[in-house]
Design a protein around this nucleic acid. Structure first.
Lengths: 140, 140
DNA sequence: GCTTAGGTAACTGAGTTTGTTACAAATTGA
DNA sequence: TCAATTTGTAACAAACTCAGTTACCTAAGC
């Protein structure tokens, strides 16, 4: 799995956009709230735009804003947009010994096991919307 | 989460032990079937022993063998033994801006979200035993 | 055409991970 | 007691990932 923080940053960015006054913020403002570099934010925005979660605008007064209401964006969509597929553990990197029956099939079985975890998490995250997150943020 | 392959190696090693004739194999034999270095295997064995999943024995004729029947070892136990807690994505590494309401609480909310995924995967993996894996290996 | 802001390439430094060598410690059996 | 075997462990190397950074190009608005 990804142990990078792109998902965390993405949720932060999208929440900020959802809560901003006119719905738009530029990469410098977003970088400030996340406490990172504007380029890191822009790289993230590209992936989120690719997934049709937000719209970017160049030039003066530009920036990013949500492409749809926060209730229509799920954490599963956000995760996939910035981290690719759900992946809980790293693959078996080596070619296991063909001789024994374990080496012959272990990769297939592990793939199966990985898919079970992925489906389970995806289902869980598909049920949580950005609006839910924003709501929790306002409560705390 | 862990994008390392320790879990994959661990399942491979434990399956090999479960299927071996007298139930015991040394680190060199295990390294051969996994196609890696004996020291990598030994480091893994230490964690698995720590979790009471297997027993190691030094000296001539030594090696490792399962501490209990494969039906009593779950993938959840194996995962925790070698990869620590279930963790799907990396934490927010920076201290977010305190000024805005997002920065103030985003970490708490994300922690909540991460726990939901962790519990969900743990439940899934607790239901799969090493015996199930071995059975699948023999079928394929 | 000047200014602003996103798009993008290239590089750095830190951290992680597997693999490797080397050796100490324990165990067995002669 | 001694020699052989095997785990335990430290130390290091090479590859990889990742966030951060600088610099510059491109597009849009005034």
């Amino acid at each position: 799995m990804a142990q990078n923080c792109r998902f965390a940053f993405a949720v932060h960015v999208l929440s900020s956009l959802a809560l901003s006054e006119d719905g738009a913020m530029n990469s410098e403002q977003l970088a400030e709230t996340v406490n990172t570099n504007p380029v890191v934010i822009r790289r993230l925005l590209l992936d989120l735009r690719e997934a049709n979660l937000l719209i970017t605008q160049r030039g003066p007064g530009g920036g990013a804003k949500l492409a749809c209401p926060s209730s229509q964006i799920s954490l599963a969509q956000i995760f996939k947009a910035v981290s690719g597929e759900f992946q809980l553990f790293g693959e078996h990197p080596n070619e296991p010994a063909k001789g024994c029956c374990v080496g012959r099939s272990i990769k297939l079985v592990l793939e199966d096991v990985a898919q079970k975890a992925a489906r389970c998490v995806e289902k869980e995250y598909a049920a949580i919307s950005l609006a839910d997150v924003v709501h929790q943020l306002q409560e705390k």
